[in-house]
């Protein structure tokens, strides 16, 4: 890994507009080869002089190229959203624990995503689908603010529903005059309405903290056990290697010990996440 926190040189090969404020960046490595990673792991991306931030890796390690889907939300991402393909970036990683893909083998999988939270889930979803025989039934429940805010539309509506033994349900908070003939409503009640059976199932949820909070309440109501509910935590990170203290929750550092935690693990942490 990178000494002195010096990033590896890489280049943005292609930029895909997902929504008005989310773009997917395909990264190529013309200099040194890329690092290996697993679903749920993260990387620090930087633009020289602009800054550095932690992003979850959106692509599955089973597929190339490496991708990051990034929402325009701060100082670095504002600039990232303006760069052109060919832009050199700095990258270092992988960081974090990743999803427990081995422990999840043999289980049915329930993926619950909200907004840009589908980014880390997409890595896991495609990884599991590329190892289809290792996992049971797959159920993807996803919601965004409006139809225009849905990310990965091609996968959501074309690719994933075609995968064997997979259901995909998509909702939007409000359609607001946009073309949409699907369900309307927030993710937690949508989830309760679909009421997927907890038996033999592991639920993985990623999204805005407020959505995760209510999804977790819904799952508990539906009798999911805390050790079978998995989520990811978000914090600002400055180093990625458990030093800068920014992502500290309890005795844990999200950059090392997370970002993936089971609900059972979270119950042992203080509530400031």
């Amino acid at each position: 890994m990178s000494e002195h926190l010096i990033p590896q040189r890489a280049r943005i090969a292609e930029i895909i507009d997902e929504t008005p404020d989310v773009k997917t960046f395909r990264v190529e490595f013309p200099w040194d080869p890329p690092f290996d990673y697993m679903p749920g792991q993260c990387a620090m991306l930087s633009l020289p002089a602009v800054g550095e931030a932690m992003f979850s890796i959106t692509s599955s390690p089973t597929r190339e190229p490496m991708e990051f889907s990034i929402k325009k939300i701060g100082r670095l991402t504002d600039v990232l959203h303006r760069v052109e393909p060919g832009q050199e970036i700095g990258i270092r990683g992988p960081y974090g624990n990743g999803f427990p893909v081995d422990a999840m083998k043999g289980s049915d999988l329930l993926f619950i995503g909200g907004g840009i939270g589908l980014a880390p889930l997409r890595s896991l979803i495609n990884y599991c689908f590329d190892h289809r025989a290792d996992y049971g039934h797959g159920h993807i429940i996803y919601g965004a603010r409006s139809p225009a805010d849905l990310v990965f539309k091609e996968e959501l509506f074309e690719n994933w529903p075609e995968v064997d033994n997979v259901d995909v349900d998509v909702t939007v908070d409000a359609a607001e005059g946009q073309k949409w003939d699907g369900p309307v409503g927030f993710v937690p009640p949508f989830l309760e309405e679909l009421d997927p059976d907890p038996a033999g199932k592991i639920a993985v949820t990623c999204g805005p903290p407020i959505m995760i909070k209510f999804v977790v309440q819904s799952l508990e109501k539906m009798q999911y056990q805390p050790e079978n509910v998995i989520t990811t935590l978000e914090k600002r990170m400055k180093c990625g290697v458990g030093k800068c203290g920014r992502c500290n929750v309890g005795s844990q550092y999200i950059c090392i010990d997370g970002p993936v935690f089971s609900l059972a693990e979270l119950e042992r942490l203080p509530d400031d996440y």
Binding site: S46, P48, A49, G51, K238, G245
Partner: peptide
């Protein structure tokens, strides 16, 4: 206390 923040600085000619 060991926590730190990280910030880039650049020359005027960038």
């Amino acid at each position: 206390c060991f926590c730190f923040d990280v910030e880039d600085t650049v020359s005027l000619d960038l």
